[in-house]
Design a protein around this nucleic acid. Structure first.
Length: 484
RNA sequence: GCCCCCUUCGUCUAGCGGUUAGGACGCUGCCCUUUCAAGGCAGAGAUCACGGGUUCGAAUCCCGUAGGGGGCGCCA
């Protein structure tokens, strides 16, 4: 049975990198018919917050990355391997039990070093230009020594006793064979003085207990993997397969961070990206199929995803390509879905569309194909609902020509005389006017557009005029004449 | 400093010993067009990081070097 997990630590919003990891785990599970598990790794007592958990759930839901096991949005747990929150598991003594077992077997030991003392060890190691391996100062304490430390009021952590010689390696599903020399690895902390487990320990215990078959995570965890493998061996457990995903970097080639703009999934949502875009784009960051396919229809990624297509080298996040892709997805949207999705942005813009006689869905559809972001739409259609803001450049360029007053007056008369103010008759009347006055079509169209909308670019002209309406159009033509 | 990982157009990538090194974003030009987009077509853009091997033949295999990234916490 294939079981994978996404195990975020709730110390902030879901980031792009985390979302990509979650997505790849999800896609892998879908592809092989496995189980996708969400586990909350809140063993950082200082930084974990309930709001972060909530925010992560929200982002996962927005991205439609449904998990089969774990804590559900309503707070209940689903699955037979729970609890799925590490702080809850800690309270049940799960980690302590295995730590005690390893201590009893001599594979782990209590260490009484203070943070200050460890600092000295690190400084010394740096000074002597040798790797920091902690050195196992407390590895072989006698009972008397332990009692003395305890009498001094020292607190202890539990450290894992690393093998002194040999190598620890594995066959990574993405990186192939990776190995580390044991003597260079440190006796890492398993339990903190607080009794809480550290990441490396909790992760192994839970992955084993939850019967995780494939650990798919960022390659910033490669150096943790040998430590974890040693733990699997010490506990006599079979280890899962490992697949380490390459990192996502910012446009300048450094690790993606706030300096590069939006980094959390929630921010992209707010800016007007579709969740389908995010999934598709993120999937292509470090993964591809043999056809270099760019756009994937709903459900297609789930079918085509394969760890074999994963890239070893880091990928730079390209906001320009993201925008292109979002435009592609927006154009694919049915009119009604577009309206639903863009509604929150219209509301937020403060645009009052209630007085319009034309259904909003039709006006939105007029500019849908031109949006790269949902948030751009309100600005594109606002002149339908309120007085146009005349763009000075457009006014200068197209309304200042000598023949314009004559044109706008003539068009006004022509429109006033129209019995039916619809796209086709408006176009006919406009073209007839141009012809009658020996003007090129464009010579008339452009000033009319600017006069009615205030700008040089916009929707298809005669439909636009129809939607503005007869009365309002005549009013705006008058207004425009005063600007010349 | 030590350890590990990585290296094909500006960017995301295909490639798995013999290709005119393919696609996508972006860029340039043309077409379409009332505008802006979209779309169509064409084009520029990669001596496959560099240096050695192996081989009849290397982007593809091996070894070095350089550059980039990650890790070296009682953070995950």
């Amino acid at each position: 049975m294939n079981r994978v997990r996404f195990a975020p630590s709730p110390t902030g919003h879901l980031h792009i990198g985390g979302a990509r990891t979650a997505l790849f785990n999800y896609l892998f599970a879908k592809k092989v018919g496995g189980t996708f598990i969400l586990r909350i790794e809140d063993t950082d007592e200082d930084r974990s917050t309930a709001e972060s958990v909530k925010s992560i759930y929200e982002s996962m839901r927005w991205l439609d990355l449904a998990w089969d096991e774990g804590v559900m949005a309503d707070g209940t747990e689903k699955g037979a391997y729970g609890p799925y929150v590490q702080s809850v598991r800690e309270a049940q003594g799960i980690y302590r039990k295995y730590a005690d077992q390893l201590i009893a077997e001599g594979k782990a030991y209590r260490c009484y070093c203070t943070p200050e003392e460890l600092d000295e060890v690190r400084k010394k190691a740096a000074l002597e230009k040798r790797p920091l391996t902690y050195g196992g100062r407390c590895r072989n304490l006698t009972e008397e020594q332990k009692k003395e430390f305890e009498a001094q009021g020292r607190k202890s952590v539990v450290r894992f006793r690393m093998p002194d010689a040999g190598y620890t390696g594995w066959h990574d599903l993405i990186h192939k064979d990776v190995k580390f020399e044991n003597k260079l690895l440190t006796d890492f902390v398993m339990l903190k003085t607080s009794g809480y487990p550290t990441y490396n320990f909790a992760c192994v215990v839970d992955d084993h207990l939850m019967e995780i078959s494939h650990v798919i995570r960022g390659d910033d965890h490669i150096s943790n993997t040998p430590l974890q493998i040693c733990l699997y061996k010490a506990l006599g457990w079979t280890m899962p397969e490992f697949a380490h995903l390459s990192m996502i970097l910012g446009p300048d080639g450094t690790r993606l961070s706030k300096r590069h703009g939006a980094t959390s999934v929630g921010e992209y949502h707010k800016q007007g990206y579709l969740s389908e875009t995010m999934k598709n784009y993120l999937a292509l960051l470090g993964w591809s199929n043999a056809e270099s396919q760019q756009i994937f229809k709903k459900g297609e990624l789930e079918e085509k995803f394969d760890l074999k297509g994963c890239q070893k080298s880091p990928a730079i996040f390209d906001p320009v390509k993201l925008d292109w892709m979002n435009g592609e997805y927006i154009r694919l949207l049915p009119k009604n879905e577009m309206l639903d999705l863009v509604m929150p942005y219209i509301k937020e813009s403060g645009l009052d569309t209630s007085a319009s006689k034309v259904p909003l869905i039709d006006i939105v559809a007029l500019e849908q194909e031109k949006c790269k972001l949902l948030s751009e739409l309100p600005g594109k259609i606002e002149f339908f609902f309120k007085d146009p803001v005349y763009n000075p450049e457009a006014v200068e360029k197209t309304l200042k020509a000598p023949e314009v007053p004559k044109i706008l007056n003539g068009i006004k008369e022509a429109y006033a005389a129209l019995p039916e103010f619809k796209e086709a008759p408006i176009e006919a009347a406009t073209r007839a006017f141009a012809k009658a006055n020996a003007l090129k079509a464009g010579q008339v169209f452009h000033p009319v557009r600017v006069a009615l909308s205030g700008r040089a670019e916009g929707p298809t002209l005669f439909r636009m005029i129809e939607y503005i309406g007869k009365e309002e159009s005549l009013k705006r033509l008058d207004k425009a004449l005063t600007l010349i």
